[in-house]
Structures are given as C-alpha cells and as structure tokens.
Design a protein around this nucleic acid. Structure first.
Lengths: 207, 207
DNA sequence: ATTTGGATAGACAGCATGTCTAATTCATCA
DNA sequence: TGATGAATTAGACATGCTGTCTATCCAAAT
C-alpha cells in the first residue's frame, strides 16, 4: 500500500537536464527562420533528442513549456538582478532610470524570441495570463517609484499619478522598445531615448 | 475556343455580398469569447452560412481573408478620410495632431479585433507583411510632417529627425495606444495623452 | 436554350495538440 | 544482488485545423 521512501537524488538532476535541453531546443526553434510553421511540440522534442511524451511529462502542455521558456529568458536576460539593484538605489529618480534600463536590457537580450513568445501569448490563454501578471508586477514597481517621487515634488509635471504610472508602463513595454529600436537603432541608443522620456514624464530634468 | 463576352452584373454584386458576409462573420468570430480556439475557416464559413470552399474561392486563403478583414476595419474606423483631412491642414503641427487623432480613433474603433488581428499577423507571414507595409506608410506620413515642422524651427528639441520620426511612430503605434488605454482609460483621454506627448516630441508647446 | 461562373458537399492529404498504454531503462532502496 | 519506482520511450489514437480537388448544382447572362 504505502510506497517506500524514495530520494530522487541523481534522478532529479537527470530530469532537470532534460528539462533544460527541451527549453533550449524550444528557444533555438523559436529563433529559427520560420518558427511559426515548425514550432511544434514534435519538432521541439526531436531537436532536444527526446520523445514527444517527455515534453508533456515535464511541462504538461505546450503552454507550460512556453511559460518555462519565458522564465528562462527573463533569468538569462538578467531581469531579476537588475530590478533588485535598481530598487536599492536611494534616489527614486535613479530607481526609475534603473528599472527602465533593466527592462530595456531584458527586451534587448533576446528581442526576436520575446517578440514571438508575446505573439503566441495573445492566442494562448494560459501563456497570456502568465505574461499579464508579470506586466502587472512591472506596473506595481513603477507605481511605488512614482509615489516616492511625487511625495515631495507633488504633481510637478501637471499629471495625475495614474497618468504618470501608465505612461511609464507604456514606455517600458516590450512593444515600445521593439518598435523604437526598429531594425537599425542600437539597444543602448533606444534605452537612452526611453530613459529620457521616462524621466520627462515625472518631470525630471533631461541630462 | 474564345469565350463569348460575359458581363458579370448581378453575379458580381451577389459575389460581393457573400464576400461581405464572410468578412462580417470573421469579424464577429474574432470578437467572440475564445476567438483563438474557434477562429477556423470552418467556423467562419458556418457563421456566414456559406460553404468552406467559398471562403477559399473568394479570399484564396485564411491569410487573404484576414487581410480583407483588416482593410474593412481600417475603412470602418474612418482612417483614410481622417488621414486625408489631417494632411490638408496648413500648419504642420496641426497635421501631426490630426494624424495622431486619426490613428487613435482607428485603434479605438475596434480595439479587441485589431489586437487579435495583429497577434495573428506575427505568426502569419503574409498578414505580417500586409500590416508591416501599412506601418511603413504611417512612418512615411510622420516623416514628411516632421520635415515640414523642422524646416523653419531646425532641431528645436535637440533631436535628430530620425529620432523624432521614430518616437512619433512609436507613440502612434497600436500597441502604445492599447497599453496606455488599459482597461479603464477612455479613448478620448488616451488620445489626448498621446497627442500631447507627440507634440512634446517635436517641441511644440503643450495646450 | 445554352453557356458560364459562383456556390456547394464531400473526400482527401498533411500536420498539429493532447491522451493513453505497454515496454524499457536505470537510480534507489532493502 | 534483486525488487521497486520514476522517468523515458515508441506508437496508436481521437480530434481539429488548413488547404486541395472533384463532381454537381444553380442562377445569371447570352
């Protein structure tokens, strides 16, 4: 009846290995020429040298795999560290600049993959929910910073708090970065423009 | 050998009718709850009370139908008229404001449908191309206006022409409007904020 | 009355997701 | 060492999608 105790140990790290292999394969395939056509669970599994069933065992569904892939991209793009660093700054305006930088660096770290993943999210309820909640966290960060800025200076730029937050949220959106960067502008230059506009929104002097 | 002359007449208008019915059905289905799941050619055809083959006869492919649907939305959203009207204004700053208004009104005219259509476009090469070329036309409009503004005032805001154009392009993007509007801000209010920011980009005084 | 072209139903190939099962492999445990 | 348990696997399967083809019907144009 009762199963005997069982420590996973080596088995766990083997499973983690396959998880990583699958995520890496999905990542590579998402970046390949015609990802829309061939981005199937079967193609991912073949690329990871794994059975299709293994993908379902590990991630439950294609949606689950895409969520894991997004997590991986955020980590690889250095988002969590940089956000933490930005929040630790004393002057709120510096925190704001740091947050904008952190997200721009993340968006720039894998633009094509993030673009396609976000597109998939619009058509996939589960993934859409995932990305939506992440966006809401970003908005929360921005709101707390705007509040810190507004406390002494009041409504310096003649905007309500909600207006400022939503403008900053829009400016730090992936789509905004992606559009502004276009096909030629460098990540650094794009980031500079967005940081500048973000600071203008809260009424901070340019440069 | 040579076919006899044949005026379509009534047949043409019948065919146009079915075309419109199919587009309307696709539109309705795109707006329905779980459009991602059931947005199939079959479902569209059934809703239009038409055979699936008719859709392929009329539009060639699902992509062709989506392109036609986007054309329909642009027309219904009053985009062409308003853009023409804006370009006819004498002061270039007024033209810029008019262009921003025209696109915001278009985006607002059917937000959900446009949002989903754009998502589909990322995954559909043909539709993606269509929407891309439309965006390029918008960018061309903005460039010509910025040039008209810059002529007397030179680089008033300390920006290059390309920077100004790309910032305006980003501000007048659908995603920007969609994000800024969020779930509560009215179309008018959102448009006002974006118009204001667009004028700030070219160094025009607020209000 | 005959020609013509759009609309139709149905079959089909090909590919996708997701489920199920039986067999296999191999680290863990007694 | 030998039994146990979990991950992995190949393959079949149901379901639904796009896109193509065909034979047929119908109504408008001649």
């Amino acid at each position: 009846m009762s199963p005997r105790p069982y420590q996973l140990g080596q088995r766990q790290s083997n499973a983690d290995d396959t998880r990583q292999r699958v995520i890496a394969a999905a990542h590579a395939l998402l970046l390949s020429e015609d990802s829309a056509r061939r981005f199937s669970v079967d193609a991912i599994a073949r690329r990871a040298d794994v059975a299709r069933m293994t993908v379902y065992n590990q991630f439950g569904s294609k949606t689950g795999l895409l969520e894991a892939l997004f997590d991986y991209l955020a980590e690889a793009g250095g988002l969590p560290e940089r956000v933490g660093e930005a929040l630790s700054r004393t002057k709120p305006v510096d925190s704001l600049a740091g947050i904008v930088d952190a997200f721009c660096l993340f968006w720039a770290s894998d633009r094509l993959a993030i673009r396609r993943l976000r597109a998939l999210a619009v058509l996939d309820a589960g993934l859409g929910e995932s990305l939506y909640s992440r966006n809401e966290r970003r908005k929360g960060l921005l709101r707390s910073i705007v509040q810190r800025i507004a406390a002494p200076a009041s409504a310096a730029a003649g905007r309500t708090l909600d207006e400022s937050v939503d403008l900053l949220f829009t400016l730090s959106n992936f789509e905004t970065f992606d559009t502004l960067a276009g096909s030629t502008r460098s990540a650094e230059e794009t980031t500079r423009l967005l940081r500048e506009m973000a600071l203008a929104v809260v009424g901070a002097a340019r440069e």
